[in-house]
Design a protein around this nucleic acid. Structure first.
Lengths: 146, 146
DNA sequence: TATTGTTATACTCTATAACTATA
DNA sequence: TATAGTTATAGAGTATAACAATA
């Protein structure tokens, strides 16, 4: 490895470490702004956007195991935030949908939590927002790629 | 609010949602690549870089409560990855340091975990890496700001 | 057999409350 | 009183293993 390549690799390692550190801090910060659990809010937001989905579909979207999603949905249902209906075409599947109460709760949570982050994001300049937008695409590739 | 402002706010909200979603997926992905727990690895890396630190200092760096850090350090110590020595100047403080075994273990973990992420980051173009670098700075402001 | 989903169990990670010891 | 740290307890979030029901 040449000196130039070595220097480049060290810079990449530093970037990687910093990325990992800031991810942790940002997730923890976001968690502290909550009304109800972060995962539940995330699932509810997906359901509101995408309409009724099955447990497996939700698990794939969130990159968690179906068993974990099953638990999350059970909690949301116990709180009256989602309903489950049998899929008319496939007896194995369940169609999960947000309730009206779920949508209202999500909106209230957004005002508190995303509200905090949205405010922060809005305070960034247009150029900074564009940088963040590109970085989100890059991070999605990192997270979802093979 | 004008139509232009409304459109801008909606775009910011979308960016915020996507940022939140990708953070979750990336953290989970990173967790799956582990040898030993993510938090422990993070603390060990700080200790290796910054030398001996107290529980409170580590808690501040990681943005967690001192009680939580106390628990993390107890686990690291039980595994022989760090040592604790009384601070000679302040009887209340403890100086936490990485052991030789801790440094070796961290290196092995990096090969597996940061190795995975580093490889991903290195696969990005120079421009993309620069975007990510800027975004890390922005996210640090979001996470650590008031 | 393959897919969908559940239940049981355990581990990671973090928090709050209540406490001790030192400054 | 204020600061550093610990212990106890609880809750969020996720995983693996074992299982039942349906395709």
């Amino acid at each position: 490895m040449s000196n130039t390549e070595l220097a480049s690799a060290l810079e990449t390692d530093a970037l990687t470490s910093e990325l990992r550190a800031v991810l942790g801090r940002l997730v923890r910060r976001l968690r502290r702004e909550h009304r109800f659990p972060l995962t539940q809010a995330s699932v509810l937001a997906v359901l509101e956007q995408e309409g009724p989905l099955s447990i497996s579909e939700l698990a794939a979207i969130e990159s968690v195991r179906p068993q974990s999603m099953s638990q999350t949905i059970a909690e949301l249902e116990a709180d009256g935030l989602v309903t489950r209906r049998p899929d008319p075409d496939d007896g194995r599947r369940t169609r999960i949908a947000a309730t009206a109460f779920g949508r209202i709760t999500l909106e209230a949570d957004r005002a508190a939590r995303d509200g905090w982050l949205s405010g922060k994001v809005q305070a960034l300049s247009a150029e900074e927002q564009e940088t963040l937008r590109e970085a989100v695409r890059l991070m999605a590739r990192l997270a979802d790629g093979s």
